[in-house]
Amino acid sequence: MGDVLKRTVNLIRSLHGFPAFQSKVKHMLCSTALSFLGPAFEVVGRHVPEFRKEIESWEEGRRFALRVLPKGPAITLEKSGDMIRYLGKGLKSPHITLSFKNYDSALPVLMGIAGSHQAFAENRILVEGDLAKTMEINRVVNIVNAYLLPGIATKKVLKRAPKMTLRDYINKGKVYAGLVPAVVRHLI
């Protein structure tokens, strides 16, 4: 049975046009994940005091982008007041750009299978801009992950999964409840 499956998979992979199709699927997955991640910064910022405290010292208007090289999707975010605003898809004059080398580098991180620290360690991410500010961004990404991903995933994705209090769980619930409307709002 295993052999049959293996041969079938090999056959599919050898089909003309399969690599292009696979690439399109990966593009779609990355693009969808980023469509959720961008608004998630806004929603987490609204409900999580720890997030607002973390960005308190950031200069107003700091823009950062996440993208997938060479021609993958990108999103840009901006510090505005006590929150991070999602500016939408594409690069919009960011001060700092975090670029995944390719879809395979990006997918585990964007799908919540691997952490950003692991991506840095494994040279999956290139940084354009101030490295100290990138560390600050990385901490914020970790907070977003902690409230976006289920507990079992945060243990794998974060170096140290946060100990959630009842209030944190309530905030997590608010993040889940607010995420889909936020994504839809940005799509319209």
Binding site: F120, A121, A132, T134, M135, E136, R139, L158, K159, R160
Partner: peptide, 13 residues
Amino acid sequence: AINDGALAFNPVE
């Protein structure tokens, strides 16, 4: 120190 790039590679947060 917590904004230093080297910290990204420390095994412990």
